[in-house]
Design a protein around this nucleic acid. Sequence first.
DNA 1: ACAACTATACCGTCTAGCCGGTACAGTCGA
DNA 2: TCGACTGTACCGGCTAGACGGTATAGTTGT
Lengths: 202, 202
Amino acid sequence: MAPMSKNAPAPSAPTRDRLLDAFEELLVEGGERSATLDSVAAAAAVSKGGLLYHFASKDALVDGLLARLDALAREDADNIRTAPAGPVDYLIRTSVHTGSPLDRAYIAGSRLAQGRDPRAMQVLSDIRRRWLSVIEDAVHDPDTAQAIMLISDGLYVNSSLAAHEITPPSHTDESMTRLITLIGRLLTHNTKSTELDTRLPA
Amino acid sequence: MAPMSKNAPAPSAPTRDRLLDAFEELLVEGGERSATLDSVAAAAAVSKGGLLYHFASKDALVDGLLARLDALAREDADNIRTAPAGPVDYLIRTSVHTGSPLDRAYIAGSRLAQGRDPRAMQVLSDIRRRWLSVIEDAVHDPDTAQAIMLISDGLYVNSSLAAHEITPPSHTDESMTRLITLIGRLLTHNTKSTELDTRLPA
DNA sequence: ACAACTATACCGTCTAGCCGGTACAGTCGA
DNA sequence: TCGACTGTACCGGCTAGACGGTATAGTTGT
């Protein structure tokens, strides 16, 4: 392993990241089957030998992607917790596919999980658990937290299906706001008026 | 063509259905990649030649599965509409993977859609639209209907991920009831006290 | 000098699809 | 009623190409 810093933007190793980007992209756009070593290498404008120089096997490529996903998701959990508009608002708004690095990595990970890769399933399951616990902290009723997570999951699966479809269900900014207002209705009734964090933006 | 009835249970042609069952099973259990012609044939205890006699290509196999899924989903839409406990209750309860023929076919279809098969995406999208319109009829607010659909989607994706995982999120009968009660809270506030159909069972 | 590649050739396996053949049930004219 | 023939349902061997992975010799920037 090179002694390069693991969190630095990438001063000396862009190729590795480009390969991961290409792998991710192919998974998202074409599913598991189209993400072959040859096509990943081609998409990253690297030879197959070059790919295998950085990732000794396809498993290593998967591990690399999953590690990146995990890191992004950990950052995101902090963002949710400290979001100015409140965790629920943030979670719901970012559940619809925005093209952020996390979104792309998450969908790519989902493809691998659908292919029954146990590592991918584990990582995804951990991420979900982390999100759930953040929401549980914000909303004091576990059932409500569960329902909110389900809505978030639903948004994710819809936006990942609609990513390249005709007639996307169009989750506009306005409709998201209405959805969040609706979720607010779930909250205000079963908590004991303790501080709950569902501030909505103007 | 033999003069056999097309809708009859299957007096003389079980092999075709067995092949579809096997294809479905492999998609659900092992994802798109493991559902090869060889393994489908083997799982149905038919030779590869036998498979190709019934389905001339893998595309034909996919079409067969999708046709079956579509038929099951149409039946289901009627079931939702006429459910004694109300459409919302029925939809939510059946969103958690029960192993019914529809569930298996739906998850199999999802795997194909994740593999970016446009036909699968279309069929899934149609099914979702059909469900949504049933819920919209039952609940008069489109936003609420949308939220309920999202919860249903979330349940589906969770139960299909958890199908063979350690630590399934355990959607027990009791927790489902609590969830439905919670959803009831979404309803009673924005409709104009017109009849709305969210009766819960004892 | 060395890391970071490229290019090319290869190997074994898997995959989709094709094809020739078989078994057998039914039909039909003489 | 029997032989010729037809259609259905299947078997199993085959091929071309894709795939993951190996190997190795050469190139380039620092």
